[in-house]
Amino acid sequence: MNEFNVTITAEQKGKRIDKVLADSFDQFSRSQIQHLIAECNIEVNGDPVKSNYKVQENDAITIEEPEPEELEITAEDLNLDIVYEDADVLVVNKPRGMVVHPAPGHTSGTLVNGLMHHCNDLSGINGVIRPGIVHRIDKDTSGLLMVAKNDKAHESLVDQLKAKTTKRVYHAIVHGVISHDTGTIDAPIGRDTDDRQAMTVTEKNSRDAVTHFQVIERFKNHTHVNCELETGRTHQIRVHMKYIGYPIMADPKYGPRKKTTYPISGQALHAAVLGFVHPRTGEEMRFEAPLPEDMKACLEQLKRENG
C-alpha cells in the first residue's frame, strides 16, 4: 500500500476533491481518484468523502493506493532497440504495434516483458506491472522512451516531466495542408463523454494541454510536421491535431473513418527526439530516432503524388 498526503491551500479552496488531486499528482487520473474515493481509499481529515466534495483550506488529505494486481509477467527476448543504457537510465526505441506494459488479458509481448529479459535492475516505483516505466507512448506510436533503472532515477525523471523540462518531439504526417509554418495548440484535454476509450478537447473534467508544431514539408493533401509536447496528456498530439482540423494519417480513433491507402498500420506518429537531464551526473542528454520504414514509405508516396 502506497500512501500520499497533501494539505489544501487557499488557492485550491472550493474545488472538487477529484480535480484537485488529479491536478496535484501526475500518477493519478481523475477517474482513478474517483475510484479510490469510491473504495474509501481517500480520507479528508480522517474521514471518507464523496467525489464531489469541495475542499477547504488546510484540509489534510490522505490517499492510500493499493498494490497493483499481481500479474505473472514473463521475461521475453524481444530484440529491443536499446539506444542508450547506463546504471541509472535506459532509452529504448519502441516499434509500432508494441504495448508498453502488461495488463490483465495482455501479459506478453510488451515492452516490459522485453525489458525484464534485457536487465534485472529496473525501478520498482510503479510496481510489478510497470517496472522502470516513467512515461508511455501509444501502442501504434513508435519512438523513444526513457526507462528508470533505480528509484532515485525514476523520481528525478518524473520530476522533470512535472516541471516540463524534458524535451519530447514527435514527427507526424497529418491530413490537410497547414498554411502557417508554426503554431501552438493550447486546449485542455479530458475523457470523451460519448466514447470512454477516447479523449477530446473539453473544459469539463479536463487538464491543461499544450502542443507546439512546426511544418517540415507540405504535400498535395497532407503535411509532415513535428510536434513538441509541453504537457503529456493521453493521446495529446492525436487529439490536438484533430481539434485544429488536421488529424494524423491512419489514426483509427481520431482520423478519417475510411481505410488508408498508405503503407502504414496505425497512426503516422513517431517519438523522434527525447531530452532530459541525467539523474546522477546532471548532464544534458539528447537522443534521436530515425523515422520508421513505414513512415518513410508514406512520405515517399506523398512526394510521388506531388509530381
Rank of each mutant, 00 (worst) to 15 (best):
L291E: 15
L274G: 06
E300Q: 14
A272Y: 01
A289W: 01
V277K: 13
P279L: 13
Q267A: 05
G275P: 06
A271G: 03
A268P: 02
E288S: 11
L291K: 01
L299E: 13
V273K: 12
I264E: 00
R286M: 12
K303A: 13
A289T: 03
F276P: 10
E283I: 14
R286F: 00
E300R: 11
A289I: 01
E283M: 07
A268L: 08
I264C: 06
G282F: 02
E293R: 03
L299M: 09
L299W: 04
L269I: 05
A271D: 02
L274I: 10
S265R: 13
A272M: 12
L302D: 02
R304C: 02
V273Q: 08
T281F: 09
M285S: 02
E288W: 02
L302H: 07
F276A: 09
R304Q: 13
E300F: 09
P290L: 14
K296S: 13
L269P: 00
A268N: 02
A272R: 10
H270P: 04
H270V: 11
L302Q: 05
K296D: 14
K296A: 15
V277N: 05
H278P: 06
L299F: 06
E288N: 08
E293F: 00
G275K: 07
L302A: 02
T281N: 02
L274P: 00
M285F: 01
T281K: 12
R286W: 00
M285I: 08
M295H: 04
V273F: 00
E293T: 09
R280N: 12
P279T: 10
M295N: 09
H278N: 06
E288R: 14
R304N: 09
E288F: 04
I264P: 01
D294P: 00
A268V: 05
L269E: 05
P279K: 11
A297F: 06
C298H: 06
L302K: 03
K296M: 11
G275A: 06
G266V: 05
A271L: 04
H270W: 02
K296R: 11
S265Y: 03
A271I: 03
A268C: 13
H278V: 09
H278D: 06
L302V: 05
V277P: 02
Q267V: 05
G266P: 09
G266E: 08
P292I: 06
S265F: 01
